[in-house]
Every structure is written in structure tokens, then in C-alpha cells.
């Protein structure tokens, strides 16, 4: 469903993505992990073109996303994206955060959009927070609202860019639980995360990145028990020693 073919990206002299070839299949949950600076976030941000690439191509549902005829805004509305810093709109209530793009991009009627937002909020366990403003919510609650906001566009795939890294430890669980239930419902997901418990339990495959390359692709059990690559072994043992 999301296919990278020979993807390259430079930041000036720095080669951020090096010949990335990989695919996220429909209904699959892929966890991307690796040391910081390895290109994980850059890779996930190329999928909805928050980062442009310098070589190769990326296709979504067999459609090259860089083709001229592709409407960028229409395409982006089909890919849910969840940020590390939540990025809720602080001047809008939780309800308005969620109904904004269905109404502005899809032209949905307010009543319909609000009903849908209410459903999504109860799905992420925040039915009673519709009228709150983001500033009144905890980090975990904000991130769950951000997930609901992304889901409001009915995206066939969801991208998560370190969704729990900015959270206090006791709030990580509530966000991961929402992500787990999404995975169980068959959502196609690509997650950059350091939550190895989540990867083990939910992921279908793990991609390990280092220096802009995907150097290992494996099922979670195999990856955690018998990492093949020396860099992956070192990464995992560093994680375990903490």
C-alpha cells in the first residue's frame, strides 16, 4: 500500500535517506525503529510529502504520489498523520479541532461532522472533553485527540511519528492502547516509535534503520530475539541495559 522504491534524500551534503526500498502492505502494522538521526522521521514524513525526496519514488495504493496530476491536498487527506508534539490547534476546542478538516476539506455539514467527532472522541475515551481546549488537557489526552482528528478524514492508512516520545511515562499507555485498538480493527499503520513492547505485541514487521538505510526487516519475535545485523544487536542491548 505504501511502497518506497529507491528513495533518496539529502539535506545539503548530508545523505538522510539512502536507497530505501520497502513496502507497507494493506492492513499491516510496521514499526520503524533505530537510533536517533537514522532517518526514521524523515522517512515517515516523505509519505505525505511533508518532506520532499530527491530521488526514487513513493507510491500509495499503486499511485505515484509525486505525479503531477495527484492533488496534494486530496492525497494528504487520505493519510492520517500523528505528530510527536500533537500539534493540536490551541485556539479551537477539541470538537472544532476534529471537525475542521472534514468541514473545510470535504465540505461536510457541521451537524454530521460533530456527530462523527463525538463518535471518535468516545472511541479514544474522551467523550466528555469535546468542549475543552487543548491547553486544558494532559499530553496523553491531547495525543488521543490528535489521533481522533486524523481519523476524522477516514484515512485508509495512519502514520505515527514518535507519538509517545513527548509524553510523561504514565501517559504512554493510554495512547498505545488507542493505537492497539486501531491495529486490531485492521488499520494500515506505519509507526516510528521506541516502544519496543508495543512493537512486539502489535507490529507485523519491524524495520530497523541506521544512517538513512533500512538495514533489517523482520517479524518482531525474530527481530527482538535474534537480530541479524550487528548495529541492531547493539541498539537492542543498549535499550535493555536501561
Amino acid at each position: 500500500m505504501i511502497k518506497f522504491s529507491g528513495v533518496n534524500k539529502w539535506y545539503g551534503e548530508y545523505h538522510a535517506l539512502v536507497d530505501v526500498n520497502a513496502e507497507v502492505r494493506k492492513g499491516e502494522v510496521v514499526v520503524v525503529c533505530g537510533p536517533s538521526g537514522s532517518g526514521k522521521s524523515t522517512l515517515i514524513r516523505t509519505v505525505n510529502r511533508l518532506e520532499e525526496i530527491d530521488g526514487g519514488n513513493i507510491s500509495f495504493d499503486d499511485q505515484d504520489i509525486h505525479e503531477k496530476k495527484v492533488s496534494l491536498n486530496a492525497f494528504r487527506s487520505k493519510v492520517g498523520f500523528v505528530f510527536q508534539q500533537f500539534n493540536l490547534f490551541p485556539h479551537l476546542s477539541v470538537l472544532d479541532n476534529i471537525t475542521l478538516s472534514p468541514m473545510r476539506v470535504r465540505g461536510m455539514k457541521r451537524a454530521v461532522a460533530e456527530r462523527k467527532a463525538a463518535d471518535l472522541l468516545s472511541r479514544v475515551g474522551l467523550a466528555n472533553k469535546a468542549q475543552a481546549f487543548p491547553g486544558q488537557l494532559s499530553g496523553g489526552q491531547q495525543q488521543r485527540v490528535a489521533i481522533a482528528r486524523a481519523l476524522a478524514m477516514d484515512p485508509p492508512a495512519m502514520l505515527f511519528d514518535e507519538p509517545t516520545s513527548a509524553l510523561d511515562p504514565e501517559m504512554v499507555g493510554e495512547v498505545l492502547n488507542v493505537m492497539k485498538s486501531l491495529a486490531q480493527d485492521g488499520m494500515t499503520m506505519m509507526c516510528v516509535t521506541h516502544e519496543m513492547g508495543f512493537a512486539r505485541e502489535v507490529a507485523d514487521r519491524v524495520w530497523f534503520m541506521d544512517a538513512g538505510k533500512i538495514i533489517e526487516t523482520a517479524e518482531p519475535e525474530a527481530f527482538f530475539l535474534h537480530p541479524q545485523h550487528e548495529r541492531a544487536q547493539r541498539f537492542l542491548s543498549d535499550l535493555r541495559t536501561h
Binding site: 490547534f89 478538516s101 476539506v105 478524514m153
Partner: peptide, 22 residues
């Protein structure tokens, strides 16, 4: 923060809609 524009654009909002609403 740059994330405000990014979040809005990631939802499929155009540049002008992003400016006006966010």
C-alpha cells in the same frame, strides 16, 4: 510553531485554508 502549519497541511487543508483557519 512550524507544527501548526504541518498539522493543518497534513489534514489536507490548502495553504489559504491553513492561513485562514489555523
Amino acid at each position: 510553531p512550524k507544527g501548526q502549519t504541518e498539522a493543518s497541511r497534513a489534514l489536507g487543508m490548502s495553504y489559504l485554508k491553513t492561513m485562514r483557519a489555523v
